[in-house]
Structure formats: structure tokens, C-alpha cells
């Protein structure tokens, strides 16, 4: 059952990519959740859709773009989106959460226009929305590995500053931690990881991989480091279960991965509830 994933290159790439996003997404998710920014992942994934639609549209009219994987345009859009959200959070200083629905709906709105202008809905688009087990080519995979290394290294380097800022922004600023630049860096990382993850999980469900494993981890973890440990375990387990069942049952992996996460979450809530009695 599992062997089939090692017989075919494309499946192997999907599995490895899955394992990498099962690691990255929950780690970034821990920071998003404790900073009460979990909806940010949704906003950024929707603006990724705009980029993908734009790339599909360009591909139809300009030959140069026809061969380009739309995911890269999606990443470019979601990085721009993350910077726009930062601007908007500044504009609405007292209602910072407004930035999220603004970017989310703008992203979808513009995206749908691009989609209609391009092809309308087709099978490719379905894969972008809900994920695919066969989406990763060898060159995509090389990009995924590079980005995974870069994101992990940056998170490792700035771990203590991001932790301090998440826990207590005022004190972190007093002790000289550069708040704005770190926040921008973090949002760019989130945008990149969404770009990587959406090929497997799909745009509509990518935020689940950043929040559900963290929600489960929160039920178990006593400290911040433990949050990462549990979140990554839940993330990886859900990826493995989700990918295998998607392949063997011919389902969209986004759906199966999220379902695995939901079961893990329900289990966590139920089990920790018993424990605290």
C-alpha cells in the first residue's frame, strides 16, 4: 500500500513535499495562532489564488508564461498580499483584524475575474483549489526543498525574538527587538509556505494545516517548545494519513488531510478533557 509511493517519482515527490509542509505549516501556525492571526493564513491563501488565476490568464495570451508553474505567481501575489496586510493593519490601527477580510475578499474577487477571463473553471483549477497528489514535478520539488531549508533556517535564527514578540510585544520592543521588520519577515515566510503547501493541500484548505495541528497541540503542550513538537507530530500524521487515503480512495488530498486533522483534534479535545478531570 505504501510501496506505491516509492515506485513512481511523482508520488514520491508528493510524499516528500507533504512531509516538509507537515513540518513547516504547523510551526508557522504556532506563531500565527498565539498572535491571534490564524485567519491571516486564509487571507494569504486566497490572494494566492488571485496570483494563480493571473498566471493562467497570462499563459493563455503570452507564450512566455505558458510554461510557468502558476504557483510561483501565486507566491509573488501572496507575498505582496502579506505586505499589504501589514500596511492595512497600520491604516486601521484600532481595528487591525479588518485587514484580513479586506485582503481575503479582494483576493477572491480579483481572482474570480481573472478565472472567468482565462478559461473558466477547469481541472487544473480544481487541483489548485483542493490539492493533488500528482502536482509536484522534479523541478518543483527542488524549489520546495530550497524554500524549506530557507524558511527553517530563518525560523531557527529568529526563534527567540519571534517568541518574545508573540508573548509580550511591549517588553520585546523595550528590550530592543526590531518589531516591524521581524513581523514583515514572518509574514513573508507565511506567504512562502502557503505557496508550497497549496500544491498538495489546495488553496481553500491550506490554512487548516497551519491552524488545526496547532489547535490540537494546544490541548497537550505545557510550554512553547512543546507546542512545536506536538503541532509537527499532528501535522505529519495528518499528511501521511491524508495522502495515502487520497491516493488509494481517489480523493482530493486537501480534503483527506483536513479530515485527518479534524479527527486528531476531536481526539485531543476528548482525551485531554478526561485527563483534567
Amino acid at each position: 500500500m505504501i510501496e506505491v509511493f516509492f515506485q513512481f517519482d511523482f508520488l514520491r515527490y508528493s510524499l516528500y513535499t507533504g512531509l516538509m509542509i507537515g513540518f513547516l505549516a504547523p510551526i508557522l501556525g504556532v506563531f500565527l495562532v498565539v498572535r491571534r492571526l490564524s485567519l491571516m493564513a486564509d487571507a494569504l491563501s486566497h490572494i494566492t489564488l488571485t496570483g494563480i488565476a493571473f498566471s493562467l490568464l497570462l499563459g493563455r495570451h503570452i507564450t512566455m508564461f505558458a510554461g510557468l508553474n502558476p504557483v510561483y505567481m501565486g507566491m509573488a501575489f501572496s507575498i505582496t498580499g502579506s505586505l499589504l496586510i501589514e500596511r492595512l493593519r497600520h491604516v486601521y490601527r484600532y481595528y487591525k483584524e479588518l485587514a484580513i477580510p479586506i485582503i481575503l475578499s479582494a483576493g477572491i474577487g480579483v481572482g474570480v475575474v481573472f478565472i472567468s477571463l482565462a478559461d473558466g473553471f477547469n481541472n487544473d483549477l480544481f487541483n489548485y483549489l483542493f490539492g493533488s497528489v500528482v502536482a509536484i514535478s522534479q523541478s518543483d520539488f527542488q524549489v520546495v526543498v530550497t524554500l524549506t531549508i530557507v524558511v527553517t533556517a530563518l525560523l531557527f535564527l529568529f526563534y527567540k525574538e519571534l517568541f518574545f514578540l508573540s508573548f509580550d510585544e511591549e517588553q520585546a520592543v523595550i528590550s530592543g527587538i526590531p518589531k516591524r521588520s521581524l513581523h514583515v519577515l514572518f509574514m513573508v515566510l507565511v506567504a512562502l509556505v502557503i505557496g508550497i503547501s497549496m500544491q498538495i493541500v489546495g488553496i481553500l484548505l491550506v490554512s487548516a494545516l497551519m491552524t488545526l495541528p496547532v489547535a490540537s497541540a494546544m490541548k497537550w503542550a505545557k510550554g512553547f517548545k512543546q507546542m512545536f513538537l506536538y503541532a509537527v507530530i499532528f501535522g505529519e500524521v495528518s499528511i501521511v494519513i491524508g495522502l495515502f487515503s487520497a491516493f488509494h480512495l481517489d480523493l482530493a488530498p486537501g480534503g483527506t488531510i483536513v479530515m485527518a486533522n479534524v479527527f486528531l483534534l476531536i481526539g485531543s479535545i476528548a482525551l485531554t478533557r478526561k485527563r483534567s478531570l
Partner: peptide, 8 residues
């Protein structure tokens, strides 16, 4: 916030 005394 999930942090231990040591971490804080």
C-alpha cells in the same frame, strides 16, 4: 499563552 515559567 502556552509557555512555561522557564521560557518566560
Amino acid at each position: 499563552f502556552p509557555a512555561t515559567v522557564f521560557e518566560v
